[in-house]
């Protein structure tokens, strides 16, 4: 159990805390203090930004030859990684990691909440996040929904994420490769408004029923109710009901 640290002690240790180099016991005491002291939280926040900015000054460097291929292979292990454009075929939904998403946001580590990414020790803190007592919600509101097949009612054929921030954006992943011959060709993505109207967002191509697409978009979280994918002849291929949720911590989900 950490002992009580005063505001003065906290401020003396704040630079080391913000840089992530305060030793374990002192760090625990400092975080316990921050948990209950708004003034000190306000004091340390700009120091955390300094730490973050400092790392940002480090120069970019060219990685070794083949790095890109090796990383992509590890991220998509059941595909042949490639360096060129457009040579890979998207995996079906069955082969990808499950996205844990809409949910009630779990905990945040106090320092992470204060210091943004600078407060994270990813790899340790991320695991700690789910194990520690809830302190504040993390994640941000986003519209999320499952795409369901119009021809095969209820069957999940993809996912949609729509971010209402600035810039807002939408991303969808579709795999209409169930029964029958999968559709290939252009499709149009429409946002359904709560008042029954639709807004055309753009077109993209499906190949054998599969495709991913994203774009910047104005997304009004209060005025949008769903998304729809239609073929050029107006046939509705899939729909999604969008709900506001907070992104759920991903630990252990993949």
């Amino acid at each position: 159990m950490p002992s009580d640290m005063s505001c003065e002690q906290l401020r003396e240790a704040s630079a080391e805390l913000a840089l992530g180099v305060l030793p374990g016991r002192e760090r625990a005491e400092a975080i316990a203090h921050l948990d209950r002291c708004a003034d000190c939280r306000q004091f340390i926040e700009p120091l955390c930004r300094v730490g973050e900015r400092l790392i940002g000054l480090l120069p970019d460097q060219e990685p070794p030859l083949g790095f890109e291929t090796r990383v992509v292979r590890r991220l998509t292990p059941d595909t042949t990684a490639h360096e060129g454009h457009g040579s890979a075929r998207a995996r079906g939904l069955g082969g990808r990691p499950v996205l844990a998403r809409i949910g009630l946001a779990p905990a945040a580590v106090t320092l992470a909440a204060l210091c943004g990414f600078a407060g994270w020790a990813v790899g340790t803190a991320i695991e700690d996040v789910t194990a520690s007592a809830p302190a504040a919600p993390r994640g941000e509101p986003m519209l999320v929904g499952d795409m369901t097949s119009a021809a095969d009612a209820g069957r999940s054929v993809g996912e949609v994420y729509a971010h209402p921030g600035r810039p807002g954006w939408i991303f969808m992943s579709v795999a209409l490769d169930g029964a029958g011959r999968p559709y290939s060709g252009k499709v149009t993505c429409l946002l359904e408004r709560s008042d029954g109207g639709t807004v055309r967002l753009g077109e993209f191509a499906l190949r054998e029923g599969q495709g991913d697409w994203g774009s910047t978009a104005r997304v009004d979280s209060r005025g949008v109710s769903g998304a729809r994918l239609v073929s050029p002849d107006g046939t509705v291929l899939a729909t999604a009901h969008l709900q506001t949720g907070q992104v759920l911590t991903g630990t252990g989900q993949t």
């Binding site: 991220l75 998509t76 990684a81 454009h85 890979a88 998207a90 990808r96 990691p97 991913d212």
Partner: peptide, 10 residues
């Protein structure tokens, strides 16, 4: 990226 699409990963 979480969808596992190689093009997105690249």
């Amino acid at each position: 990226l979480a969808t596992g699409d190689p093009d997105l990963a690249v």
